[in-house]
Design a protein around this nucleic acid. Structure first.
Lengths: 130, 130
DNA sequence: TCTTGACTCTATTCTAAGTATAGACTTTAT
DNA sequence: ATAAAGTCTATACTTAGAATAGAGTCAAGA
């Protein structure tokens, strides 16, 4: 199949597919005589794996590592477990940060209503003051 | 004061201060004869305002708007309220996304322990399969 | 057969908010 | 006088793509 069909089947955009290839993440496909990329099932699977990882917000570098792991099936999978565990920690950290940020913003929102002038604005005075 | 002292007092890095100036966010300071930037209290306050906004993850473009608002003290502050409200919505959305991501990752982590081979790895098989 | 529209190609630029570096200049301290 | 620390500009780098320009290719209809 050509890149357009691969894009539809995978749910990735054409530019994204070419980007993954340039990054060395997705294997280079054969080319037709007209230099069009020509993909088979194996590359579709590769791409779906990449997309699945990205949907979990695993970075491209980490995906590289995972692909390397996949190609060495006899090795221990402890590094894979570690990668996911660290990722969970990062997500937890981010959630904490955002929750705290949310509180601050909500308090700020309560310090003003929209019917004032800038001069009297509670939000701006909090931003300026503290 | 020179830029190094401003950096210390504000908690911003020197590069960040110059970056804000290039972006038109922080006003241009006077220069000494040797072309060094020379800051006073007013610019320190500007920078602290910017930093306060950034700590709330308000974008540089939005900070531009807020600064514009600050310079028009007689206008209504409804746009400021709106900006913060929208920002709260975005933060809430992000928290939702991350919470869902966290669940998925934790389930995945439970599907494997580190004492397997890649071939048997529950994490990789979930990433590949679904 | 010609043409038109849809598809693909490469290469380049852009996004956000800084961070990092190189190479030159100035100031301060010893 | 010299060395260290500070400052200057300009440039490149980061992430994960998205967008664009300009050229080439392919299939269908007139």
């Amino acid at each position: 199949m050509k890149i357009g069909e691969l894009a539809k089947r995978s749910g990735c955009s054409i530019q994204t597919i070419r980007f993954y290839e340039r990054q060395g993440l997705l294997s280079k496909p054969k080319r037709t005589e007209a230099n069009y990329r020509s993909y088979g099932k194996a590359l579709l699977d590769e791409l779906i794996f990449i997309k699945q990882c990205r949907s979990l917000d695993i970075s491209i570098k980490e995906i590289e590592t995972l692909i390397y792991n996949k190609n060495n099936p006899e090795q221990s999978c402890s590094s894979v477990n570690k990668l996911i565990d660290e990722h969970i920690c990062q997500v937890n950290e981010k959630i904490k940060e955002l929750s705290s940020l949310k509180l601050t913003l909500e308090q700020m929102a309560q310090s003003c209503d929209a019917n004032k002038t800038i001069k009297e604005c509670g939000i701006l005075s909090e931003l300026t003051g503290s």
